[in-house]
Design a protein around this nucleic acid. Structure first.
Lengths: 249, 249
DNA sequence: GGCTCCTTTCCGTTGAGCGGAAGAGGATTA
DNA sequence: TAATCCTCTTCCGCTCAACGGAAAGGAGCC
């Protein structure tokens, strides 16, 4: 068991997520799986430092200090900056929700998003993670991921909607097609009523991110969307190549 | 001395700032004032959890996990959202650098910024802190801060440029004027060649933030800028009042 | 090879962290 | 008013995890 103080402190921080932005001490202890007295001590220290803040009602939230640190993370700097104008362009011409994601471990991490007005149920948020096998950007990232990642990811194809692909063979076949055709699609595999298209963003010849779009229906406009996405992805890639030092593993 | 494990782990995180986004283990140990072996162990744990990431060259940077957590911090949600459109409007009509800041302890914390092309040396960044007595937004926030904050802040008027105000009496007089006239100005007090104007942003009748602008010269256009800022600040305040639950202490 | 600088591993000692338990505060119910 | 049920905070003696000096392992340079 991770019983080190550090891991416990981190477990406290890890108790927060998009659905739990504010937690009482007791909740925090429960979610971090710590004895109350221990949680109390850790939380106190985190609070004193500014990693946590208290709301008027006494609940804890992530503090400004963490927010500041987060801004220093390189997730954003290079890629987000480079992508920003292209995302805006894309949004301008398609008026659909567009987003940019990277692979983090076996999940997709959304690092930028522009939300459309259109009424499509969009589950992604900036900073949220989703499984790779049920999202457009995920399929792209998986298609170009190292072999061992793909193998591992195929072992956990959890069902989300009735349309989620849960057979490894079928997904593998799709990934082969993604590589061949240069784009991925989904049809209500993550949430009903939402389809998506995505293309890889390259820096040199490695795929560093995926650029995706969510729409209510694909059939009519697929070619148009794919080419718009590819143009944008190309532009982002060019910007990246042009900028000074970029650091992806 | 802060010798607790938690405080040491936090010291490691605290070693990062805008000027030190990437640090080697040795640097990290030096900056956090920890023995190398200790730093090594802590950094290892932080890295394993995702609080830190490694660059190709082995240096450490803030990891994605922290970035994600930062997005959950309430600093942004309410205020930033409410302010965003007004900042864009302001930028559109003035084409100057505009920014939004809150008070955090005895410093100003910039939470949003739109940078102009104009060649003015702007030192603020989103997430950075600056002293209150040498910035426009700082003077505003100080003018409306609780008495004890003002007393404490006046004890450390460190000189930054030749124009920085370092006499408590002079600053107090200015703060009185800020309250009377509803805006604050600076003239090269933070960096040479940069002047600023700022106004308070109110939520109900408490000042929750300050809205500021940086320009090369104020004399010509002061009234115009002040009224533009005040209109925007008002708008933000109204949006805040309208939105559901807002949590500032 | 010999040097310097950085990273990683080892391991015996010791004091910081642990957490059950008890107390304090507050809200709701009877 | 007292009883009940929360969650939060403090206490304190035991123990095991964290500590860090030292030494080994790399990597790069002259």
């Amino acid at each position: 068991m991770g019983a080190s103080v550090t891991s416990r402190a981190l477990a406290v921080l890890g108790a927060f997520d998009a659905e739990h932005r504010s937690l009482s001490l007791t909740d925090l202890a429960r979610r971090a799986d710590l004895p109350l007295a221990t949680a109390h001590r850790l939380v106190g220290e985190l609070h004193r430092w500014g990693a946590l803040a208290r709301e008027p009602n006494g609940d804890y939230v992530i503090g400004r200090r963490i927010w500041q640190l987060g801004l220093l993370a390189p997730v954003q700097s290079g890629l987000r900056q480079a992508a920003s104008p292209f995302l805006h362009d894309l949004y301008g011409t398609t008026l659909s929700t567009v987003h940019l994601a990277v692979r983090d471990g076996l999940e997709v991490l959304y690092i930028e998003r522009l939300a459309g007005h259109v009424s499509v149920p969009v589950v992604s948020r900036v900073g949220s993670r989703l499984p790779m096998h049920a999202t457009g950007v995920g399929k792209v990232l998986l298609a170009y991921a190292p072999e061992e990642v793909r193998v591992e990811a195929l072992r956990h194809l959890t069902r989300i909607t009735a349309y989620t692909i849960t057979q490894p063979a079928r997904l593998l076949e799709q990934l082969r097609r993604v590589r061949a055709e240069g784009y991925a699609t989904t049809g209500e595999e993550m949430s009903l009523g939402a389809c998506s298209v995505a293309v890889p963003v390259r820096h040199g010849d490695t795929v560093v991110a995926a650029l995706g779009m969510v729409v209510p229906d694909l059939r009519r406009q697929l070619p148009r969307l794919v080419s718009a996405l590819q143009v944008a992805a190309h532009g982002i890639g060019r910007t990246l190549a042009g900028s000074a030092s970029v650091q992806w593993k």
